[in-house]
């Protein structure tokens, strides 16, 4: 992890203004922001750790715990809300056995909301592992859950 971090951070030495892009880059590479990464970011930029945490915790994009292999995001933007996003969330919670905002113990799944991905004309929308699913109904959900089971079997 240490080598990896110093490699990611090497272009940012002393660049305090670039804090948010740095956090984004580290999360993109590692999947979340572990404590040691936060320390390393503080060291590289020369910012106090409190400042690094203050900024990172302000923004919804950053995670401080490990995420699941599959990340399901249920759009709860207005268009999707009107088209029944709450029921879709209920179904995901039931099927995955985790509540919104949680990661399963085996790190297979994370479930959360997203406030609009800009595909509102296809509402209701779900984003699974960066792929956008539009006009989601019970049969599309079944297919998503079946695909999850497929990848489990492959291991």
């Amino acid at each position: 992890m240490e080598d990896r971090l110093s490699e990611i951070l090497s272009p940012y030495k002393g660049k305090q203004d670039a804090l948010i892009p740095i956090l984004q880059k580290v999360q993109e590479e590692i999947g979340y922001l572990p404590a040691e990464a936060m320390q390393e970011i503080a060291r590289t930029t020369g910012l106090p750790q409190s400042r690094v945490y203050a900024v990172a915790t302000f923004y919804a994009q950053f995670y401080f715990t490990r995420r699941g292999r599959h990340q399901s995001k249920i759009c709860t933007g207005t268009a999707c809300h009107v088209k029944g996003a709450a029921r879709i969330m209920d179904t995901f919670e039931r099927e995955l056995g985790i509540a919104c905002g949680e990661t399963s113990e085996d790190y297979e799944h994370s479930l959360e909301t997203v406030a609009c991905v800009g595909s509102c004309a296809l509402a209701p929308v779900v984003v699974v592992d960066e792929e956008v699913y539009g006009q989601v109904d019970s049969s599309k959900m079944s297919k998503i859950f079946d695909d999850f089971k497929e990848t489990e079997k492959e291991d």
Partner: peptide
């Protein structure tokens, strides 16, 4: 930033 959750003009 297009924060309004349910709008996508700027995205387009």
């Amino acid at each position: 930033d297009e924060g309004d959750p349910g709008a996508f003009m700027d995205r387009s």
